[in-house]
Design a protein around this nucleic acid. Structure first.
Length: 887
DNA sequence: CTCCTCACG
DNA sequence: ACGTACGTGAGGAGG
């Protein structure tokens, strides 16, 4: 048995080290389900490193079995006073074992013994059998095991770096032989394991004594030779402690382990298990590493799949498909309004038809196929599919199950736009991700090779078919079938139609603004340079900070990670101290409008129709709101007049039409009144009071609304917002510039005046702790794993989210319902009016003049009756020749 | 690619 | 003693 190499790892100790090494990045290391993964990640790094160096033939990871061991029997306070293992670490332990399974490394634990003893016992057996042994641990005590055959590698700083202790290295570091470590511990004790040693004797003194007398026994044998001293007194006094501590420090090398050397052969990683594991842990870097490693393609056991290429000649074969089919249209670019068409696939139960030729979709055969009502069509991303087909002139396919939508509803974190990744997370592994097949970045490309491309298309069809019943069952389990069927699925088509309609942009107006702003900017720029006494990049916070706080010597208050903060809130505090400040604020404001809105918008206007076509992300936010990208039409300026003018560029696409806008008034506070059931809040809405004014009357103890000044109303408004966001005294004080104490007083009074709200907050946080998630009115769900975190910040954040999500999310539910009904009304009434935009609590339409009176009636009535709450919903409308005038 | 800043609800 | 409002997207700077 030449060259047997055994690797022994102290699992708990390394996990502990890994956890704390990556502790400040704790929140970054979470997977789709909110599980913390930093210790697993660190452990993995360490494993890769050590396996590379050691190249073991045998390996085992030992774990502690529990709190009580033979050592606690000897000394009950052994390891006493240690703080509990953080829950964020404990939750990772079972997964650590899974990781090790993937690595093909055996794990072992033994009741009443620590991992150290297992390692000590096995290493002794291995040494006797002629093995070379490497021990990995985060605990220096284990260096007592080092010998000419055993190296003890102790993690330093991070986890992937280790320090190798050979007997020589122990000698150099401590001036002791490995066997003397236990004597040192006996004399000096160990604070982390909480055993005492001799009073006033620390490592230094212990080493000196041992260099002279060899062992604890040696020290006491020569006690009489010592001169009288405090040290000698302490040694005499604490003799029992010294011997007990030595015993506690000594690793048991004869533990009754059942595992044998022959059982721990290391045969290497199981690629498939590890890939699955990494997917679930969301370890992208390790996945990438695996993909790059040799032989991965062969080992990844994607079940072979057969497909048939669809051509004009065999189109008729489609008739053999009966019942539900999977359909997939490949639009490789993120922006599907402009993407090329790469191909499509359709099929069921192992019969998969694929093609690069999307023109086949417009054939009579396919049209006939889809218009037969017998086919349920299942897809991934219905909105994308609908928009793509629409571009081909096809409008007859309606989806029944959209696994992207379903998966998002089940868990809002599960919103990746990759079918393969989604499938993996739901345990279906016979598919690769787009990145694996198409590549990434500039190299991303649909393969020229038919086989590779078609197989991937077929795998997607198969994944859809496999996942549909599973996801349906999970939705049912969560009582979310209604949410899916009556809200999200129909909404996907409504959104698709809005995106397709697009909104017309007056590019002449934008170009005119562009030249005006260019001129103004260069003027302000010159003034700023004069005031600064030099030219610099005003847009660079780094350079600006230097000018303001170093050269001009203005007082700096806030700092960011990388330097001085120059945010508006900071600059406003400096107003009046130097004229440059006002100019910088103006410059910032104008240049934001110029770059993001004027230039930004001009860049994305489609040359074919002079319109912008946004893309709504329906499966992104944690609350159920939509988001809008490319361009984002949900953050067009309105608060400041300068920016608001941008809205003049959004115009109807036909003459004799208007832009019409309706918005919900105070929808979030109304939802709050409904959900909390607070009588006072409900009363205010039922009486159609000015809600901020009535809040002001209550929290400032005024006689009536006549006493409310604008400033008081502003403060009350901030309190109302604070309540919706999950209030903190600090946040409120910052927002309205009052002391923290005052802010706290406001909040306390608010809770007295609106006791139902206080009760709701307590109730929802408790329920989140209990269930692990919160829900909206329509059963939209958000998981909050941090609600029980031991980290104050994370827990507080989760608590605020627990309060806010049902409010923001229910408001999102409501407007979504309104949108679906609105679209239906427009279609059944055969109106030309088009719904164009949704901005969270507002809907924007383009209305032909002759439909204006009908729409003015219809939209508010549909919106305020979308759902029945305990308080009325209020809708306000306006119209004009452009979006700016619709106010 | 991350940070800062700032636009919206 | 912590270090904060909730939810987003885009542009520019600088490593």
């Amino acid at each position: 048995m030449a060259n047997k190499k055994l690797l022994l790892i102290d699992g708990n100790s390394v996990a502990f080290r890994a956890f704390f090494a990556l502790h400040n990045a704790l929140s970054k290391f979470t997977n789709q389900d909110g599980l913390h993964t930093n210790a697993i990640y660190g452990f993995n790094k360490m494993l890769d490193h050590i396996l590379e160096i050691v190249q073991p033939t045998d390996a085992l990871v030992a774990f502690d079995a529990g709190k009580t061991t033979f050592r606690t029997e000897m000394f009950d306070d052994y390891k006493g006073g240690r703080s509990k293992t953080p829950p964020e670490l404990s939750e990772q332990m079972p997964y650590l074992r899974e990781l090790l399974k993937g690595y093909g490394i055996k794990t072992y634990e033994l009741a009443n013994y620590e991992a150290d003893d297992i390692i000590g016992t096995l290493s002794k057996q291995a040494e006797d059998a002629g093995y070379t042994v490497t021990v990995v641990t985060g605990d220096r005590d284990l260096t007592q095991l080092s010998s000419d055959k055993t190296t003890v590698s102790v993690t330093v700083k991070g986890v992937s770096e280790v320090e190798h202790y050979t007997p020589q290295h122990v000698q150099e570091k401590l001036g002791l032989k490995p066997a003397q470590i236990v004597d040192m511990k006996g004399l000096a004790g160990d604070t982390s394991d909480n055993y005492p040693g001799v009073t006033k004797v620390g490592e230094k003194t212990a080493i000196k004594l041992l260099q002279q007398y060899g062992t604890v026994e040696g020290v006491y044998a020569h006690l009489d030779d010592m001169k009288a001293s405090k040290l000698k007194e302490h040694l005499i006094e604490d003799k029992d402690k010294a011997f007990l501590s030595k015993k506690l420090a000594t690793i048991n090398r004869e533990a009754p382990i059942e595992v044998q050397l022959a059982d721990v052969h290391y045969s290497g990683k199981n690629i498939t298990t590890l890939v699955d594991f990494y997917e679930r842990m969301n370890f992208q870097s390790f996945l990438k590493q695996m993909r790059a490693s040799e032989g991965f393609e062969d080992k990844q056991e994607v079940k072979t799949i057969t497909y048939e290429e669809l051509t004009e000649k065999n189109l008729a074969t489609l008739q053999t498909l009966k019942g539900p089919v999977s359909f997939y249209l490949e639009l490789p670019d993120k922006n599907y309004h402009l993407s090329e068409f790469a191909g499509f696939g359709i099929g069921q139960k192992g019969t998969w038809f694929v093609s690069r030729n999307v023109d086949l979709l417009t054939s009579k055969t396919l049209k006939a196929f889809f218009t037969e009502k017998t086919h349920e069509v299942n897809v991934f991303d219905l909105k994308r599919t609908y928009v793509g087909l629409n571009r081909l002139g096809i409008s007859f396919i309606t989806g029944k199950n959209d696994i992207l939508l379903q998966s998002y509803l089940l868990d809002t974190n599960d919103n990746s736009n990759d079918l393969g990744a989604l499938a993996h997370r739901h345990g279906f592994l016979d598919i690769k991700t787009d990145e694996e097949v198409y590549g990434t970045g500039v190299k991303r490309q649909i393969p020229d090779d038919n086989e590779a491309f078609f197989k991937h298309l077929a795998a997607k069809l198969r994944a859809i078919e496999e996942l549909v019943p599973q996801l349906q069952a999970e939705l049912k389990e969560n009582e979310q079938v209604d949410l899916y069927e009556t809200i999200e699925l129909p909404l996907a088509l409504v959104l698709a139609k809005m995106e397709i309609a697009g909104i017309r942009v007056d590019t002449d107006r934008l170009e005119q603004m562009q030249s005006e702003f260019t001129e103004r900017l260069s003027e302000i720029e010159q003034t700023i340079y004069n005031e600064a006494g030099e030219t610099f990049n005003i847009k660079s916070t780094k350079q600006l900070g230097k000018i303001l706080f170093e050269k001009l010597g203005l007082p700096s208050s806030k700092k960011t990670k990388t330097g001085y903060s120059t945010a508006v809130s900071v600059l406003e505090g400096l107003r009046g101290q130097a004229p440059i400040i006002d100019n910088i604020l103006t410059y910032r404001q104008i240049s934001k409008i110029q770059s993001t809105y004027v230039k930004g918008l001009l860049k994305v206007v489609h040359s074919t129709d002079q319109k912008v076509h946004t893309t709504y992300l329906q499966t992104l936010t944690q609350t159920g709101r939509l988001s809008s990208i490319d361009p984002n039409l949900q953050n067009i300026p309105i608060r400041l007049e300068e920016g608001r003018k941008i809205r003049q560029a959004f115009v109807p696409s036909h003459e004799k039409a208007k832009i019409f806008s309706s918005d919900y008034s105070q929808i979030e506070l109304r939802v709050l009144a409904h959900i909390t059931g607070d009588k006072n809040l409900q009363e205010a809405f039922k009486n159609d009071e000015d809600i901020h004014a009535s809040t002001a009357v209550r929290i400032f103890g005024l006689k009536d609304a006549s006493e409310v000044t604008p400033n008081i109303r502003r403060q009350a408004k901030a309190v109302n917002f604070g309540i919706v966001y999950g209030i903190s005294d600090y946040g409120l004080s910052q927002n309205i510039g009052i002391s923290r104490k005052q802010a706290k007083a406001f909040i306390d009074t608010y809770f007295q005046e609106f006791p139902g709200v206080k009760a709701y907050i307590d109730r929802i946080v408790a329920s989140a702790r209990d269930k692990g998630y919160v829900e909206t009115i329509a059963h939209r769900r958000r998981y909050l794993p941090d609600i029980n975190s031991s980290n104050h910040n994370q827990r507080s954040f989760a608590e605020r989210t627990a309060m806010n999500t049902p409010i923001q999310g229910s408001a999102a539910d409501i407007i979504k319902i309104a949108m679906i009904r609105m679209q239906k009304e427009l279609e059944t009434r055969n109106l030309e009016t088009k719904m164009l935009l949704q901005v969270h609590d507002e809907l924007i339409f383009e209305v032909p003049d002759e439909e204006l009176s009908e729409i003015q009636e219809l939209v508010p009535s549909v919106m305020d009756s979308a759902i029945k709450l305990d308080v009325p919903l209020k809708v306000e409308s306006a119209f004009g020749k452009n979006w700016y005038d619709a106010k």
